[in-house]
Simulated assay, not measured.
Amino acid sequence: MDKHQHESASTGAKLTAATNAVAGERTDLDATTDKTVATLNRVNDKVTAMREARTTDPDTLGDKVFRMAFPAAVGLIGGKVFSSVWNLVVAKIHPSPDDDAQDRQQGLIMGMLFAAASAAFGTLLTDVSTKGVQKIITRLQRKRD
């Protein structure tokens, strides 16, 4: 083999190695592209599902605000009313400052009793108002349809 043939064979081997490297890079690129396209398709499917859920939701913005705000307002007002009634009852039970020593002894128990009763009353009011709001919204949705 002469020098020219040797260089030609060497160049051919380098060219084959370069071609194989490009083919390998192309295979890696194809795999990366496939992964990227699959990920984008999953995201697209999720967005489409969310859009369909939003468009098929029968609740209007007003319904959602009403569903959230009304029970909260009822719970807040009910809590204030309960607190006022509690204070009136406690003031009638212990009207004079002469029994402050007794009040201090019962303070922890009365505080715990108030907290438990207030929480129970607030939960009851919120639960009842939530069910009432749902009935009102259902009725409004039937009228809209």
Rank of each mutant, 00 (worst) to 15 (best):
D100H: 06
I109S: 13
R104H: 13
D34R: 09
T60V: 10
E25W: 04
V89E: 07
L29Y: 15
A49M: 12
Q141F: 09
M1E: 00
T130E: 04
G132M: 08
T33I: 11
W86D: 05
T39V: 10
D103K: 13
V133C: 09
N87S: 11
G107M: 13
D127S: 07
R42Q: 11
M50S: 15
T39E: 15
A23I: 06
T19C: 02
T36R: 10
I77G: 05
L113R: 11
G75T: 02
K46G: 09
S118H: 06
F66N: 02
Q106M: 07
Q141N: 12
A49C: 10
V128M: 06
L108I: 12
K3T: 05
D99V: 02
P95D: 11
V43P: 05
L125N: 04
P71W: 03
I109A: 13
H4P: 01
L29W: 15
Q106P: 00
K14L: 09
V43D: 15
G132L: 10
D45M: 04
L140W: 14
H6G: 04
K14N: 12
E7T: 06
S129L: 02
P95I: 05
R54I: 10
D30R: 08
Q102V: 13
V74F: 01
N20V: 04
F82D: 02
K92H: 04
A116Q: 01
I136Y: 11
V43K: 15
T126L: 01
T123H: 06
M50G: 12
H94K: 06
T11G: 01
M110Q: 08
G12Q: 03
G62A: 12
M50N: 15
R26A: 11
M68R: 05
A73C: 03
V37T: 15
L40R: 09
K3F: 00
T60C: 11
V37N: 11
A101E: 13
M68Y: 11
G75N: 07
I136P: 02
D98H: 09
T39P: 01
V47S: 05
D34V: 05
R26T: 13
H94F: 14
R54N: 14
D100M: 08
G132Y: 05
I136N: 02
R54E: 14
R67L: 09
M50C: 14
D28R: 13
T33S: 14
P95T: 06
T32L: 10
H94W: 15
T16K: 08
V85Q: 02
G122H: 00
T123R: 04
L88Q: 08
S118N: 07
Q5M: 06
L113A: 15
G111E: 04
V128E: 01
V128F: 03
R139Q: 08
A49V: 08
A119P: 01
S10I: 00
P95Q: 08
S96G: 14
N41P: 05
T126E: 02
K64Q: 14
H4S: 08
A72H: 02
A31F: 11
L140E: 04
A101R: 10
D30L: 13
T11H: 07
K46R: 15
S10D: 03
T130C: 04
V43L: 15
D145A: 13
V37I: 15
K35S: 13
A31Y: 03
R142W: 06
I93P: 00
A13I: 07
G79S: 11
K143P: 00
S8C: 00
S83I: 07
G107H: 12
T130M: 07
A18R: 03
Q105S: 07
A120K: 05
R142A: 12
K80L: 15
T39W: 03
G132W: 06
K80N: 13
